[in-house]
Amino acid sequence: MFDGFDVSWPLRLAIGIFTALVATFLLAPSLIVVPMSFSASELLQFPPTEFSLRWWQQYWQSDLWMPATKTSLLLATVTAAVAVPIAFAAAYATTRSLGWARLPLYGVLLMPATVPPILVAIGLFFVLARLHLVGSFPGLWLGHTVIAIPTAYVILSAGFARFDFTQEKASRSLGAGWWRTMISVVIPQMRFPLLSAALLSFLTSLDEVIVSMFVGGGANTTLTKVMFLGLRDRVDPQAAVISTIWIVLVAMVVTVVFGRQRQEPS
């Protein structure tokens, strides 16, 4: 960018130090939890003084963390499974032109991302309390799906913006009906946006705190709720275990998705 200029070395050094500091600030929290999870200490500290697997063992046997992990994974899966098709249909419709209705539709579909999550949470809590659905799986599912919709919608809309709709015309001219065209032509070519949308919907649900706090409970307590309560009341080293699992899981999924995408230039 500055190829027309020469930069003096003290300035270079200062820029380098600044960049390294900001990078450290961004990275450190993600990185320190891994060694912390192997700490032997009762207290939470970094760097750990002694190492052990006791927290991993305890996590594995915990009747608090394990069910919450299962709930969260199931919830995230169901959220992605519903939010993605719904957002796909909406993105298709708004891309294929709905005339004047397009702008208000954008507004509605992006609303869950613009309304502060705390308001989504207490609003849902209020409505679900009337329906006696607080602490129920469907209640959590509704909240998470709605929060995942804008993410999935934006990714899929961007995908459709790059999609060549002549493909659809070609398919129809060759005799394929609407469904056949969707399944054989549109969806295969949208597989990367679909995969990204599914991944991010899954992560959005897994990461969601506030709706889970208000709407979850009992048998349907999510990982984030357990963690949040733990963090607020008493800093618990087991959170480091679940954080490590989390980071490894996401790193794996991201590597797989992006690795495949790089292989297949689209």
């Binding site: 015309k169 070609a170 129809r172 001219s173 060759l174 005799g175 394929a176 009906g177 065209t181």
Partner: peptide
């Protein structure tokens, strides 16, 4: 379009 039997 898919019922017209026209090549495009």
């Amino acid at each position: 379009a898919n019922k017209r039997g026209i090549g495009v």
